[in-house]
Amino acid sequence: MARTKEFDPDAALQAALELFWRRGYEATSMADLVEHLGIGRASIYATFGNKHELYLKALDRYAEVRNPPLLDELSQPGSALPAVRTVLRRFAAESASEHQRLNGCFITNTAAELAPHDSAAAHRVEVNWEHLETLLHSALVRARAQGELPPGRDPQALARMLLVLMQGLRIVGKASTDPARVRDATEQALTLLD
């Protein structure tokens, strides 16, 4: 007869996500996970697989939580350009906040730490970036159709530029103690939407 799990797998996955997000993949050992999750190594392996599989599941969870609000925000009916501006300014504010400065963005952290040599992590990063770029592109196409964006502006190129800016904000925000750096860069980039 199979034993009943004595822990909540969703809570354990969330705890793993928070630990990986704060410390990174390489700096997090299985012993750290056992201690932080409060469950045995065998239970971690049986439920999530090895450390790498657990990391990828945590990364998937992060995307599942972060992406729907962006979709809602950028696809609201009505004027599209204010939503794009709001999202960019929120990214800048989050990037300069103490919490984000210490943790950064889990996707961006993964891009820097694992993507160059881990194809599974790189794939997840790329999927997330494609999703964000598509959301931005769709909002900018709507903005152009509504007359908010000058006709000569290329929504695809602007979406890509904004994606790169947003990822850069996360990196600079994590390393810099000067919030004006990310705020000024964001406001300068937003002038390209005028």
Rank of each mutant, 00 (worst) to 15 (best):
M1Q: 08
K5H: 07
K5L: 15
E6M: 07
F7G: 01
D10W: 03
A12S: 04
L17E: 07
W21I: 07
R22F: 06
T28D: 11
V34T: 09
H36L: 01
G40N: 11
R41D: 10
A42L: 03
I44T: 01
F48T: 06
N50H: 09
K51A: 12
E53Q: 12
E53D: 13
R61M: 12
R61I: 04
R61L: 12
A63E: 13
V65I: 09
V65L: 06
P68Q: 14
D72F: 06
L74H: 00
Q76Y: 05
G78I: 13
L81T: 01
P82S: 07
A83I: 11
A83G: 06
R85G: 08
T86Q: 15
T86E: 09
E94R: 10
E98K: 12
Q100C: 14
R101N: 15
L102D: 12
L102P: 02
N109H: 07
N109K: 11
T110I: 03
A111H: 14
E113D: 08
E113V: 04
P116V: 01
H117N: 15
S119L: 10
S119V: 08
H123P: 03
R124M: 14
R124C: 11
V127L: 15
W129Y: 14
E130N: 13
E133I: 00
L135V: 02
L136M: 14
L136F: 14
L140T: 02
L140M: 05
Q146A: 15
L149D: 12
L149C: 06
L149F: 04
L149W: 06
P150W: 10
P151V: 08
G152T: 11
D154K: 04
D154Y: 01
A159D: 02
R160I: 00
V164Q: 04
G168L: 03
G168W: 01
L169Q: 14
L169R: 03
I171H: 13
V172P: 00
K174H: 15
K174A: 09
K174T: 09
A175G: 15
A175D: 13
S176Y: 08
D178E: 05
V182R: 00
E187L: 04
Q188I: 13
L190S: 01
T191M: 07
